[in-house]
Design a protein around this nucleic acid. Sequence first.
DNA 1: GCGACAG
DNA 2: ATCTTGTCGC
Length: 268
Amino acid sequence: MEEAPEEPLQSRDSWRDHQTWITTQDILREKLITDDSFSWKLSSEGEPGYKKGEELRYVGGVDISFSKDDPSKACGTLVVLDFHTLQVLYQDFSFVTLQVPYVPGFLAFREAPVLQQLLEKMKRSDNPFYPQLLMVDGNGILHPRGFGLACHIGVEANLPTIGIGKNLHHVDGLTHSTVRKLLGAEENSSKEYINLVGCSGRIWGVAMRSTQGSIKPIFISIGHMISLQTAIMIVQKTCKFRVPEPIRQADIRSRDYIRKLEMNGKVT
DNA sequence: GCGACAG
DNA sequence: ATCTTGTCGC
């Protein structure tokens, strides 16, 4: 007669968190700026009356890598590159234990805190290399509620951001096969990128062949305070390989950092 | 109903 | 995200 089915306590809690997260995203999204809203210029050449120091120079990149032994141990990384030379001017790491799980659509609640802390540390110390623009390993508005990790960090740090996805997050009917079809289409064969138009007609970003002849695209979407057109241009100018340098350097150095820790047995 | 689903 | 070597080609 003991028929009371085991109350799924954990699912009740995670449902509550889930709703809180959605509310948070909806509130923060009201502050999102989706066009160019920065003081620097892209091409200072020939611009009448531009002031030196106003052009884009410091481009940041953030990424997180994980321990292979303990998936909750992670290394958040922030790098800043010179926009023109693509040389790394600054790097910083934060080794942390993450308590929040990865849930598709809620990546920011897992990864944003560490990355924001790295930005904050740089700003507090008035570091001259503080980024004028940040590229994020994860999507911007290409997200179920139009507010991915890049938007989240952009709004909370009040910084222009661009979202870079290495895989497509299925949104508004966009699928892997949709993109394959579009990129493979004859009329698009010469284009470097194609708009990601969902069933609703909304443009969520672009799929870009960042390297000549590369099959696997990257997915660019706006984060905060930047237009898609400008974002595309900047990504193109920072791509030596498939992934733009700020993201790639953050990724490489982040893995390197965590690998060295594991070598010294500091993780396990 | 089942599966898909950034990192 | 992470587990993983060599290998084919410019």
